[in-house]
Design a protein around this nucleic acid. Structure first.
Length: 294
DNA sequence: TAGGGACCTGCC
DNA sequence: GCAGGTCCCT
């Protein structure tokens, strides 16, 4: 057992980790009281939140940590811009204090995490993602745990259907290796990284060449894994929230491609490049209300 | 182009 | 019964 490569403190981070997790950006992050731990962007973290200070153990140095969690982002400025796009979000913005877009940089992990998410619920998705990450290379052994990066496309192609069936993947079991194979045919990790550099809409079109990837997953991968900040992932919750807020005449109708475009255009018109972050605010607010209703 | 059904599994 | 969809079919 070796020590963590880096141990440091971050003073007054204006970031609420629990809020970032609640907004559905990451699946490999655990919280127990003041203790947070997980792997993000190929870096392992144990973070103890001590009042106004983070005690961090990681293989990522302080500047990498600050970048990943958006520590130095000026939230006041962002919130003002979102508020200007829709004054009706004032209350939701207050509830979302400390929310950030986490910089993940690992489109493979994002892609396969959301591949597990279709027609599924969070607790099982997390279990499945953790299961897949067991196939990843070891980052290190710290704090009594073996920390792993998410497996590469090559490794994912080798995971058999029966193996994943046995681990409770259900009908998604064959999709993992199928999707990985197709991604390799399209150019593998270089192709995925290239999608960061082209317009968001083109990137999403390309992503949908993958089996099991429809518009919603393409949106999630584009926003969370490729860093396309203007993308708005629209799931059932977002559709409910958005019709209530902006398209009351469509309340109760089903979400089609054309209506999806309608929502995307409305968010871009209102929030521009902050459309993705505005989406997070609306999503967190909607999920909070949804839980309260139940 | 809109609507409807099947799909694994686990938790309500 | 339903869940942070996708795919296939009218």
């Amino acid at each position: 057992m070796s020590d963590w490569p880096f141990e440091y403190q971050i003073d007054s981070p204006d970031v609420n980790l629990a809020m970032c997790v609640r907004s559905g950006q990451v699946f490999r992050w655990r919280i127990r009281g003041h203790l947070h731990w997980g792997v993000i962007a190929g870096a392992a973290f144990v973070i103890e939140v001590d009042g106004n200070r983070w005690h961090v153990q990681s293989n990522a140095n302080p500047s990498e940590c600050r970048r990943i969690f958006g520590i130095d982002v000026d939230q006041t400025q962002l919130w003002a811009k979102i508020l200007a796009g829709d004054f009706g979000l004032a209350d939701a913005l207050k509830e979302c204090y400390g929310l950030r877009m986490i910089t993940q940089d690992d489109p493979v992990e994002t892609l396969f995490s959301f591949l597990c998410s279709a027609n599924n619920h969070i607790s099982r998705i997390e279990g499945m993602v953790n299961c897949l990450s067991e196939y990843g290379e070891v980052l290190g052994e710290w704090s009594g745990k073996t920390w792993r990066v998410f497996p590469s496309l090559d490794v994912l192609t080798c995971i058999g259907e029966s193996e994943l069936r046995a681990k409770g993947f259900g009908y998604r079991a064959p999709r993992i290796s199928q999707c990985a194979k197709r991604a390799l045919e399209l150019g593998g990790i270089d192709w995925l990284n290239h999608l960061k550099t082209i317009p968001a809409d083109e990137a999403m079109e390309q992503l949908q060449l993958l089996p099991g990837v429809g518009p919603k997953l393409a949106e999630c991968v584009a926003l969370f894994g490729l860093g396309h900040q203007s993308v708005v992932p629209i799931d059932t919750h977002m559709w409910n929230a958005t019709t209530r807020r902006y398209f009351p005449e469509l309340l109760g109708t089903s979400l089609t491609d054309s209506r999806r475009n309608l929502v995307r255009d409305e968010f871009r018109r209102r929030f521009g490049d902050l459309a993705g972050l505005a989406h997070q605010v609306v999503f967190v607010d909607e999920m909070r209300n949804w839980r309260l209703r139940r």
